[in-house]
Structure formats: structure tokens, C-alpha cells
Amino acid sequence: MRTEHRCWVYGDNVNTDVIFPGRYTYTLREPREIAAHALEDLDPDFAPNVRPGDVIVAGANWGCGSSREQAVTALKFAGVALIIASSFARIYFRNCINQGLLPIIIPGLNTQLRTGDTLVWDREAGTISTQGGVYPIPPLPPSVQAILDAGGLLPMLQRRFRQGEP
């Protein structure tokens, strides 16, 4: 399947405090409420204008700082389909997998695109294509890919506990 996606492009070291501010972290739990604050302190245009299927294309160390998982779920609830970055902070990377949101490492792609540009995700070929080129999606270890394939860690656990495994 090949799908076309609109890009939101950001720089290096975007931290979770600006992706989802800490001041909301213990009081908001509804997906719509959480999505409404996505990227609030970095890009106030994002939350009101993001559309389902849009993708984030960022620089190095996307999602550094606090472990807060809402920095992933806020984007997921806002409809973001993929996050591409030059590199990810480690807890953020894990949170993406666990939320079933594919994190893709393509160094420097953010410097070739602007917000509003489109890219193509080819699932069968395992590539991302832009006007500038075709980039392979790096494979994940099989045990990690299995979590993504299950739709995230929660669905995986649900399957296990519903089947009554130990």
C-alpha cells in the first residue's frame, strides 16, 4: 500500500515538555483533550490544523526529556500516522512502539522538507519517498516489530491476558 502524507517539519532536540506540557500531565486523560495541547509550546499552529494521516519529520533527539507518554499519544490522538526523525530519545522511541506508532530513523530528512510538503509511505517496499529521493525504513528487531504488529503493547498484553496465559 502506498499512501501520501502531509509533513510537519521540526528541528533538533525537541523535548517532551513542548510536545505535551507537564502542567497537564496529571489532570488530562481524554484523548481529545490531550490532542488539543499537542506541540502547544513549540508550534501553536499544529493542534488546530493537523489532519489525520499527517506525519512529523524532525531532526536529532526528537522527544528528549521527560518520559511522559502523552508526548506520543497527543500526536497519535491528533491523527499523526508516522514520526520520522534523524534520531529519537530512547524512552520516546519505546513509547512510540508501545503505542503502535511507527518511529522511523532517516537522518537529515527534516532539512530537505518544509511543513506542508508531502511524502509517500510504501509499506510493502518499506520505503519513504520524497521529491528528493527514496529512503529505506530501517528494520526493527523481530521481538520489537511484534509489538508494533500487535498494534502496541496494550493490545499485545490484552491478547495475552484474555487467552489466560500465565
Binding site: S67, R68, E69, V72, I91, R94, N95, N98, Q99, G152, L153, L154, L157, F161
Partner: peptide, 12 residues
């Protein structure tokens, strides 16, 4: 550090 879903998985 881990995320919230991972902590739930650890508890479970």
C-alpha cells in the same frame, strides 16, 4: 526510565 504503558506491563 520507561513509559506508562511499560510500567503497566511490568506490574502485570
Amino acid at each position: 526510565g520507561v513509559g506508562r504503558t511499560e510500567m503497566a506491563a511490568l506490574w502485570a
